[in-house]
Amino acid sequence: MSVLVNKNTRVITQGITGSGGGAFHTKGCLDYGTKMVGGTSPGKGGTMDANGLPVFDTVSEAVKATGATASMVFVPPAFCADAIMEAADAGIHIIVAITEGVPVNDMVKVKHFLKDYPHVTLIGPNCPGIITPGECKIGIMPGYIHTPRKNGQKTVGIVSRSGTLTYEAVFQTTSRGWAQSNAIGIGGDPVKGLDFIDVLKLFNDDPETDAIVMIGEIGGTSEVDGADFIKQHVKKPVVGFIAGASAPPGRRMGHAGAIISGGDDTAPAKMAAMRLAGIHVCESPADIGATLDQAWAKK
């Protein structure tokens, strides 16, 4: 089993012809085996993209013609919020917003808008996306480092605020003989869709996820909320890492959400909360794979 997306998920790309990555990554997802069925690009409806996929002006037209239930958003920052709300209103269930640099107050409005669409799951923005190895990749991650689960193989679910640290965790777990049920990048923005706690619930309920890796960073308290959930509900081994122990306070370190402003959102504070919850915390991201093996052996 997998969470959220699988080999039958029909996916469109919003901004499919754009130079913002839409065209390039649509091909990447197609090559991986994702059921890409079309895309949108206002003004180009009725044409085909470079891969021969139908292009529509609006998401509702695309949904009607293709039966898509998931969308990958590459629309530029200024229009990204509108694109997410359009997708929700058109009947898309899984919206994966890759776009980096969306204004925070736009996401405040999107979050409020989505309260009327409780069946919609938003991932991102500013994220690498979601992958169910061997079945469906919606996003920009290098597919080949992932391992699809074979019968009986130990399987890890990975959730992270950072793209390249996700790849790091995937690569190390693959090298050590693990499969991944899913890798989900929830994104580096302060106001976003899925958060740690939501993904942890999904992994905890998924019978084919044996263990969990969660990778957070400085800023906010969602890792601590996730740790509380783990303490109360999760029996599966969990390995954790928090990036930004060496970050100076008050400086934005790349991700809009990664800024230490109070006292509880530092890396040491988060690591302490995670340890209290029984999470196996590593000090270096290079140790994620080894720590997972140790946690698994102790189980």
């Binding site: 992270s160 605020r161 950072s162 793209g163 390249t164 640290l165 790091e168 580096g188 990778i215 960073e217 400085i218 890492f241 990036a243 930004g244 122990a245 060496s246 970050a247 400086r251 370190m253 790349g254 991700h255 990664a258 890396a267 000090e283 270096s284 991201p285 290079a286």
Partner: peptide
């Protein structure tokens, strides 16, 4: 490459006794 990995790289430099000159 990547903000999370960049932060983590600084962290690991510090972990092994060095001091990062930049992010």
């Amino acid at each position: 490459n990547g903000a999370g990995l960049a932060m983590a790289t600084m962290d690991v430099i510090k972990l092994f006794g060095g001091n990062p000159a930049n992010f």
